[in-house]
Computed example of a mutant assay.
Amino acid sequence: MRLKLTLARASGAGDDIVVTADAAASISEVAATIQRIDPRTGTGASPVDARALTLRAALPGQPEPLILPRMRPSARPGSAAGQP
């Protein structure tokens, strides 16, 4: 799948990026890859647990962004495959 995103930086600046990911990739996997290959973070970026990363979606008409779940529904602890 191909996604067009704006990467919001701590400084308040935003960079438009395009992400191509496998449809089976979790949101935390996509977020971790963005962090890992971001040329602006350089080698000084502090290591972060990739499972803790997520993405936020700014939806039209909504004042606050929606924080997306980190894991695929089938990967949630205590759930059967394919069931949330």
Rank of each mutant, 00 (worst) to 15 (best):
S79Y: 09
G44N: 09
K4E: 12
I37A: 05
V30T: 01
A52T: 13
P69T: 08
L5W: 00
G44S: 10
L55E: 05
T41K: 09
P47A: 13
P39M: 09
S46V: 13
I17L: 04
R2S: 00
V48R: 11
L68Q: 04
P77N: 03
T33D: 12
A24K: 06
L59M: 14
P47F: 08
D16H: 03
R76V: 04
P60T: 06
S46D: 14
R36Y: 04
A21F: 02
A75L: 08
G44W: 05
L55A: 03
P77K: 11
P69F: 12
A24Y: 01
P63V: 00
P69A: 14
I67Q: 12
R40I: 05
A10Q: 13
A80E: 11
I34P: 02
I27M: 11
P60H: 13
D22T: 06
R2W: 01
D38A: 05
A23N: 06
P47Y: 04
P73F: 00
M1E: 15
D38E: 10
R2E: 11
Q83V: 14
L7Y: 08
R76W: 09
D16G: 05
D38T: 01
A25T: 02
G42H: 09
Q35F: 14
G12I: 05
V18A: 05
R76D: 07
M71T: 14
R70C: 01
L59P: 03
D38N: 11
A58Q: 14
K4L: 14
M1K: 15
R36S: 09
G78E: 02
P77C: 00
D15E: 14
R2H: 07
E64C: 00
G42Y: 13
R76N: 05
S74F: 07
L59S: 05
R56D: 12
L59N: 06
R56Q: 14
A50E: 15
A75S: 13
P39V: 07
A52R: 13
Q83A: 09
A31T: 04
E29H: 01
M1Y: 12
L55C: 03
G78M: 08
G14K: 05
S74L: 09
P63W: 02
G61A: 06
D49P: 08
A31S: 05
G78R: 10
K4G: 06
A32C: 10
G12V: 03
G14V: 03
P39K: 09
A23D: 15
R70Y: 04
I67S: 10
L68A: 13
Q83G: 03
R9D: 01
D38C: 08
T54H: 02
D16F: 01
T54W: 09
L53H: 06
R40P: 00
M71Q: 14
P73M: 03
V18L: 01
L3T: 04
A50K: 12
A45R: 15
A23S: 08
P77L: 09
P77M: 06
R51G: 13
I37D: 13
R36G: 08
L3H: 06
A25W: 08
T43C: 08
A13E: 14
P73I: 04
A80P: 07
V48C: 03
L53I: 01
